[in-house]
Amino acid sequence: MSTVADKLAKKSTHRTSAKQVRLRLVYIDFWSALKLSFLAAVALAVVTIVSFLLVYLVVRTTGVLSTVDDLFQSISDGGVSLETYIGFPQVMAFAVVVAILNLIVVTVLGAVVAGIYNLAVKITGGLLVGFTSH
């Protein structure tokens, strides 16, 4: 199974109608990587908050939360109720905290990966990428 990169590496003698170009990726702009990773982190934050909301609504609607609360109250002799700790405001506050932490981590991680790639290019010479037009 040969790919376009394999075909370009062989430098075959037969002519094709498509123009083929080999380029080397030798630099990733730090600010571009930072902006792109921030945008991906915002999307991940929205997905996190919506998924927390949906999971909470499913657990609440199916009665799993009340069943676990009854079990917990029977173990603790009715002294503590989980409903006071696992309510809608608490779940959404936790979801927002997790989303903000993910936003920070993913943004920083994108910038760090761009920096590491730029340092690795000095040793490896970059990533060889083949393009073709049809």
Rank of each mutant, 00 (worst) to 15 (best):
118 N>F: 04
16 T>A: 14
23 L>F: 09
46 V>Y: 04
103 L>C: 02
87 G>W: 09
77 D>A: 11
20 Q>I: 07
22 R>E: 12
83 E>T: 14
11 K>C: 09
44 L>F: 14
97 V>A: 14
131 F>N: 01
108 V>F: 14
34 L>D: 01
130 G>D: 02
41 A>P: 03
55 V>T: 12
24 R>N: 10
1 M>F: 10
37 S>P: 03
39 L>S: 04
89 P>Q: 00
63 G>A: 10
93 A>H: 03
40 A>D: 03
37 S>Y: 01
59 V>H: 08
37 S>T: 06
73 Q>H: 03
78 G>T: 04
73 Q>I: 03
80 V>T: 15
77 D>G: 09
4 V>I: 11
9 A>E: 06
93 A>L: 15
68 V>S: 05
49 I>N: 00
41 A>G: 02
32 S>L: 11
105 V>L: 14
41 A>W: 00
18 A>E: 03
78 G>Y: 04
21 V>E: 13
72 F>Q: 02
37 S>Q: 02
65 L>E: 01
9 A>I: 05
42 V>G: 09
73 Q>F: 02
46 V>E: 02
88 F>P: 12
76 S>E: 14
85 Y>K: 00
38 F>W: 08
43 A>R: 08
107 T>Q: 02
33 A>W: 01
76 S>D: 14
19 K>Q: 09
129 V>R: 06
7 K>A: 15
128 L>P: 12
23 L>C: 04
21 V>W: 13
23 L>S: 08
54 L>A: 11
59 V>S: 15
50 V>H: 08
130 G>V: 09
6 D>I: 09
106 V>T: 14
11 K>P: 05
55 V>E: 08
54 L>P: 02
119 L>A: 15
53 L>H: 07
54 L>T: 12
121 V>S: 01
68 V>E: 02
119 L>V: 03
84 T>V: 03
10 K>D: 10
51 S>V: 15
76 S>F: 13
120 A>R: 07
64 V>A: 13
27 Y>P: 06
95 A>Y: 00
76 S>W: 09
132 T>S: 11
58 V>E: 02
56 Y>P: 07
51 S>F: 15
111 A>N: 06
27 Y>R: 07
100 I>V: 13
76 S>V: 10
38 F>D: 00
1 M>E: 03
38 F>A: 08
130 G>F: 02
128 L>F: 10
107 T>Y: 12
125 G>N: 13
64 V>D: 14
130 G>E: 02
51 S>G: 14
